[in-house]
Amino acid sequence: MHDERLANLLGAMALAIHDVMLPAVVDSSGVGVSASAALVVLGAHPGLSVSELGRRLGLSQPAAARMVDSLQEQGLVTRRKGTGRVVHVGSTRRGREATRRLLAARSAQLVDVLGSLTARQKQQLEPLLGTLLTALYRQIGDAERVCRLCHRSCCVQDALCPVGQAERSLAGG
């Protein structure tokens, strides 16, 4: 199999996974993709500033502020004044429930996709995905951005997260 065909298959798979995963995430959370990712990031790192949350999602500060406004209007996050102009964001109980639902919906879709593989194929796929994620982390350069919709507890259960490991390796740790 030549690289161009393999790359084409990978691209088609990435788009198809996107097409089945993201609608389930959005439907279960009741908010858009970026807002869903914000809830996941805040679940892992409560109290981030609006600017830092935006940076981790790849949003400008004004776009992040508008998204936080919307999440706050829906009762999913709260704001807390920090020092200076810094505003910290945290999830409400409703926000944490939405996060739990969206991660479960995401997982269900992805487990369904993997259901077409044998146990041996799944075992072979895991290290390959780790290698690809490490390469993507090196290209993107931001673990939080790569993992913005990750179910973090699943990734580190009985294993090291390949993205986190790549970040530590690059930092010399």
Rank of each mutant, 00 (worst) to 15 (best):
S107P: 00
M67H: 01
G130F: 04
G90C: 04
D19F: 08
G84Y: 08
G173P: 00
L103H: 01
G90I: 00
R138C: 01
Q157G: 03
R106D: 02
H151D: 15
C154A: 14
E126C: 13
H151Y: 14
V111C: 07
R80E: 15
L103W: 03
G11S: 12
H2C: 11
A7N: 08
V41I: 15
S70N: 13
E73T: 09
R5V: 10
L9Y: 07
A24H: 09
V40A: 15
A105K: 03
G11W: 04
V87E: 13
N8E: 15
P162V: 04
I140L: 11
D69P: 00
G82A: 09
Q74R: 15
D158M: 07
G172P: 08
R66Q: 10
L53N: 06
A98W: 00
P162A: 04
D3W: 10
L136W: 15
R101V: 06
L53G: 09
A12D: 13
G90K: 09
L133Y: 07
A44S: 14
R106W: 04
A104Q: 14
R120K: 15
Q139P: 00
L132W: 11
D158C: 07
L128H: 13
L136H: 12
R80M: 14
M1A: 11
R106S: 07
S28G: 05
A7G: 12
